[in-house]
Computed example of a mutant assay.
Amino acid sequence: MPLRRRLGTVAIVGAALGVALVAGTGLASAKTTGYQPNPHGYTTFHDTRAGAAAVKPASNDLLYHGGFIQDHVAVYLVFWGKQWTGDRNGVQTYLTNFFKGLGQPADHWSTVTSQYTGKGGHPVFGTSVLKGVWVDNGANAPSQATAGQIGGEAQRGLTHFKATKGHNISMIVVSPHGVHPDGFGTPNHGWCAWHDSFNGLPFTNMPYVLDLGSSCGASSVRSRLDGFSIVAGHEYSEAVTDPMPASGWVDSRGAENADKCAWMHLHTISLATGTFAVQPTWSNKVHGCAG
């Protein structure tokens, strides 16, 4: 049976990684008004049925639509709600280590995005993309948060980190086990995560994908936690090339770089912080999936 990792244990890990991991006091159920959600880059379910037809990427390249791309990526993880007080599956540690490793010299996966230029330049890597981690345990995360509430939590994360809002920010709101952010895991919601921008703040709705097992990538490569790095990595890479959907790099059918390679050629990458499961992303240079 897996060890139960409580906040104190994870805080020690976060400190060792040089990441600010703090218990928060924000109101997890606050509502946001004036936000019209336009979720983009949905990570749809993984078809694990025996004999399922192999998915092939659309061959058309990504097109630039005149907007920003993230030239210096700044990822912030917000673990939303008191429910994160118990994390027996080690999700906080896994995601923290994954994003801590991304951007460092051993990361040859993120650099596929460096070929894309736009307002702001082109993505530059060399140091960790992870700039902060916050466990917002001021209240329980809502059982069925709306897109507006998720955007509001991303905004509270921005305030907590005292970060400056802009195209380089990637605020990843990670919901706890057993809740259904924007309908995740309910009938007619066949997706694992999505990203959007809220009043100019790029953010990701990252549910507790282990709740849906193999449909969202669990044990698809090496461990039960595979889905967290595959799905969060999918949304992260899309936010790099299209932080304000869909004004960055999108193909003629509306697909972003990770959409075009979703659930294809799943594999592991070795980072300075560990080994993690990922999917490739689209490269215009090779006119196919890479990384």
Rank of each mutant, 00 (worst) to 15 (best):
K165H: 05
V75Y: 01
T127E: 03
A154T: 05
A20W: 11
Y76V: 04
P123V: 13
N60F: 08
Y64G: 07
H122L: 11
F68S: 08
P105F: 01
A147P: 06
K131D: 00
V78C: 10
G151F: 10
V73E: 00
G90A: 09
N137I: 09
G152T: 02
R49Q: 14
A54C: 10
V55H: 14
Y42F: 15
N140I: 07
L130I: 09
A139V: 09
W109H: 03
L63I: 08
G166D: 08
G67C: 03
T43H: 12
G103E: 01
S114V: 05
A54V: 14
A28Q: 13
E153G: 01
N60W: 06
A20N: 12
D107V: 01
F45W: 07
A53Y: 06
A145H: 05
P105C: 02
G90E: 03
V129F: 05
H160I: 07
A163T: 04
T48V: 13
F68C: 13
R49W: 10
H46T: 03
G86A: 11
N89C: 13
S143N: 15
D87P: 03
H65R: 01
T146Q: 10
G101N: 04
G67A: 03
G148V: 12
W109S: 08
F98N: 02
T159Y: 11
S29K: 13
V129K: 04
A54D: 12
G151L: 10
K82S: 07
A139H: 06
